[in-house]
Simulated assay, not measured.
Amino acid sequence: MESVFANSYAKINLFLYVTDKREDGYHNIYSLFSKINLYDTIKVEKANKFQIICNNEKIPVDRRNFIYKVYEKLREYFQKEFPVKVYLNKRIPIEAGLGGGSSNCAIFLKLMNKLFNLNLSLNDMVQVLAKVSADAPSFLWDKGVLAEGIGDKIVATIDLPKSYILLVKPNFGVSTRQVYNNKNLKLTTKPHITNIHSLSNLNVLCELMYNSLEKPVFGNNKELIFIKKMMTEYGAVKSLMSGSGSTIFGIFNSKKSLDNAYKYFKAVNKSYFVYKTNII
């Protein structure tokens, strides 16, 4: 069977400013997305019917899945069937603020474009993905992506500093919908950045790192406050919650500090997902 294969990388939000609430109920954001070296794998194979096969039984494989939604958009757009089997091997934690589902559907679309020679342009793919998941378009690029709107308007792509990253996720997730509806969510003016490409400097980037969603999430989760505090105490030059949580990440200058923090979090709570990675 003819098939194609790719890695589907996770992301962190190096900053996330929630700037205003829209008439449609969504919020406008100003965010810097960065892919990190943690990934699911996706194989798409021509078959007799459409099917998603996943190694994680917690992942729905019906119309709730973003891959399924993109598949339906393709059928609708081209007015034809694309019978494929999709093998999704999940390694990215769910409800973690790491964009696993959004990454999966973006990579699936790229693979379908290749497998069936659909000749979809980058802009075409952005338009398809934006109808499924607000931050999915950011996964089409290999660089850092500065986005606004609901995350679907790409402002710039940026070469980001190659830093050591530690991820720590406790054994609970966070509902994005509930966070955005939380009464403690405060709107924030987006920062004035005179030179977008200055974000490739780690010191400049650290000064801008902020997440508007931390306050509403931290209000109910002392454990996340603890993780962020200890991340800094163990040498992170900056620590932040990614997206709507529940993952906390730290940026480290040295591998030694990274390793020390990793050992601490692995020992302090056996239920934590603790992962050493880097910006790619």
Rank of each mutant, 00 (worst) to 15 (best):
S198N: 14
E76A: 07
K35S: 11
I193Y: 11
N253I: 01
P161G: 04
K131Y: 01
C206S: 14
L120G: 08
P161E: 09
T194K: 10
P216M: 00
I29T: 07
A6W: 03
A106S: 13
L202W: 08
K256F: 10
Y275I: 02
N201Y: 10
D24W: 00
V237I: 15
V174T: 12
A261S: 15
D159N: 15
L74T: 04
S8I: 03
K58Y: 11
I67V: 14
A236M: 06
I150Y: 03
V44R: 01
D259T: 13
T277L: 03
V4D: 04
I251N: 03
I29G: 05
M112S: 02
K215I: 08
S239H: 07
K35C: 06
H27Q: 10
K58S: 15
M125D: 14
R75E: 15
F78N: 09
A96H: 05
K69F: 01
P93L: 01
F218E: 02
V217L: 03
Y262K: 04
K131N: 13
V86T: 01
N117G: 14
M241H: 10
I227Y: 02
N184S: 11
I94C: 10
G235F: 00
P60Q: 03
I158G: 09
E95L: 04
K110L: 09
M209Q: 07
K276M: 09
S254G: 08
F249M: 04
F50A: 05
I59K: 02
N221E: 13
Y180L: 04
K114N: 13
R75T: 15
K215A: 07
K80S: 09
N220S: 13
I12T: 03
L205D: 06
S8C: 08
S254V: 02
Y71S: 09
N48W: 00
K43W: 00
G149D: 14
D135H: 04
T247A: 04
M209R: 03
L38T: 06
D40T: 06
R22S: 05
L16E: 08
F249K: 03
H197K: 12
S3I: 00
V126Q: 14
N119I: 00
F5Y: 15
Y180P: 12
K190Y: 12
N56H: 06
D159L: 12
I158Q: 11
I107M: 09
K263G: 03
Y264V: 05
K153Y: 11
K131A: 11
N119A: 05
V274N: 03
A130E: 12
K215H: 10
N7Q: 11
S163H: 09
I12Q: 01
A96P: 12
S271W: 02
F66W: 00
K215Y: 11
S271L: 07
I196N: 12
S242D: 12
K183H: 11
